[in-house]
Amino acid sequence: MKIERTVALVAAMALLVPALSFAGGRSESGGPTQYTIEVTGSTSVSPLMESFAETYSAAHPHVSINVSGTGSGDGITGANTGVAELGMSSRSLRPTELGFGLDVLTVAIDAIAVIVHPDNPVSGLSRDQVRQIYTGEITNWNQVGGPDRPIAVVSREPGSGTRGAFEEVVDFVDRLVSGAIEFDGTGGVRASVAGNLNAIGYISLGSITHEVKALDIEGVAATGANVTSGAYTIARPFLVLYRQEKTASETDRFLEWMVSPEAQAIVERNYVRIN
């Protein structure tokens, strides 16, 4: 064996091994009892999951919870393939996804609020009007009792849990008017509506700020109480997906905790608790 080749190999290993080991084991570092739960999926569910994680980890120091918000599709696939122990979805499973045979836990109900610019005089719409706006049959605010201004329709991107749920509940599945503005993420939709007097959009009720105004639908205000009572119907479940037979006992306890009164109290801060 030539010396040079050995030197080169050793040097290359010295470069590569740390890189590889970074990619490899990351979970079990702080002693044998430490356990990390990987949670991935919906960006809408992520904030709630992070609050869950914070509270839960504080009470159970040996459990750390890693939340990454990528998207509902990612969450479902992740739970199916085992990339993540828990998946988050902000929409119900689609027929092909039902075939994965995942276990589903509903941890919260989230109302979807229809939002406009705070200076927009329109304060409420019927569900039909919302549908007609989103399918392009209504294009001016004066058709719904507002000023003579064109309507800028703002939506989420295809595949988004929020969009899927909204299109299903308002009943215009895949009929979004072409030319609508599409954003990835609640923040984008909110910023777009906050900056445009003509705009209409929809976001999770928990993400409403004073920059935008939530419209009444069929005369019912978008509030947690109205969702619980069933009066406000534009809502969707927040789901956690997992495989019962694969989850560790720590994860099982975390799942149980998510539907406990303590966790549901956290839900109630921004969302609607499950019964």
């Binding site: 696939t77 689609r94 092909t96 295809p158």
Partner: peptide, 22 residues
């Protein structure tokens, strides 16, 4: 006109897509 580019489509939908869409 509101338009969507090829790269935008990938970035917008990658996280949410599944199956053939992906």
């Amino acid at each position: 006109s509101s338009v969507r580019t090829l790269t935008a489509t990938i970035a917008l939908e990658m996280g949410y897509s599944a199956g053939r869409h992906n």
